[in-house]
Design a protein around this nucleic acid. Structure first.
Lengths: 187, 187
DNA sequence: TGCACCTATTCAATTAAGTGAGTAAGGGGG
DNA sequence: CCCCCTTACTCACTTAATTGAATAGGTGCA
């Protein structure tokens, strides 16, 4: 049950509709999960039935009405309980691209290089978004000032992790492209 | 269908039993997937039925017999086809620890810090294993020499990605611990 | 004016993944 | 001698995730 915890984490920033959550809502939450809308709506329904979240219907003109969800007291307790419990073993990266790179030698190296390039574009775009969000959070302050003043540091820390991950993707991508290029020119 | 591709990637190194695969088999494959044995055996059965892999029973003394799997021609074609197809959008990190850190501000900060410390121990251990494997692969050669001589570079590249990931975990963990500590002492 | 895209959600079905326990034989240490 | 660890695998069950639609009004632009 990872999705419901991610949803609760997202709802700590305030109420949100299923659509908001599906769209990423807050980029720093989108770091550690991403899923199709259908899954979200289903999970939100379940969580509502279990009393972890409550919905408030907002009638809108010239837009479909929406249901804004927020954490109940029970939901908040669940968050606290979850955050305090010891976590199990870490998960693997589980990325399609790595599988392809692993198999590159027996397949089409050029296709794999294209996939890496594609991924690097994604990473660069994500990193740019994260950097904008960071600027927005810091508002010119240093990291230390921010952490002294801000209400919450959690989202900032997860943002940092996401940024490091994408930077690593870019750096590794360059190395991988370079080493794979030798293979094609050598052959 | 990620697991079956990971299995095929692992079998490129040579034949292996379900048990071998479950134990990690090759550390560089263990970077991008990890799963319970039951899942593996189930998937191996399916793949065998579909003709992607073939089993060879090895009778052992003072040990249960085992079935060694290897890629068939069809399996190899499937690997090549998979490696050449364009990959979709990248997956999120999807890590429990990040969710907890995100929620740290409303929960037990000390518990979250403990979880980070725990994770850092894991990361350090994994990194050490990867470094040993790297030394083993390079055998004193430089990276460039290795890539010129080695039969395959894919596994080396995925190994590099895993190493970067764990190093990043360690670095980020330190930052996170430091910033969260201020919170506890301030309160 | 027509086409494609945005908001906001729902239905249906399938496949993948995770959880928990159990079997069976040999080996090693206190 | 008992207990736990390792090899090697199996059964049963539950939950999570993916896939492919469909609905339905509004917005922008060419």
């Amino acid at each position: 049950m990872a999705l419901r915890h991610a949803v609760m984490a997202a709802l700590l920033e305030g109420e949100a509709s299923g659509y908001d959550l599906a769209k990423g809502f807050d980029a720093s939450v989108a770091n550690f999960w991403m899923t199709a809308p259908q899954q979200l709506y289903r999970e939100l329904d379940r969580m509502e039935r279990e009393g972890l979240i409550a919905a408030r219907v907002v009638e809108q003109e010239r837009r479909p009405n929406k249901r804004l969800f927020s954490l109940t007291e029970a939901g908040m307790s669940a968050v606290r309980a979850y955050a305090a419990e010891p976590s199990g073993k870490p998960t693997a990266i589980r990325d399609d691209l790595l599988v392809k790179v692993h198999c590159a030698d027996v397949g089409d190296i050029e296709a794999v290089r294209a996939a890496i390039t594609e991924r690097m574009k994604w990473a660069a775009a994500k990193l740019a978004r994260y950097e904008r969000l960071q600027d927005h959070l810091l508002k010119g302050r240093t990291e230390d000032e921010y952490c002294a003043q801000a209400e919450r540091v959690g989202p900032y820390l997860t943002l940092l992790r996401g940024m490091a991950f994408e930077r690593e993707n870019l750096q590794w991508g360059e190395t991988a492209l370079r080493l794979l290029e030798r293979r094609t020119t050598a052959t």
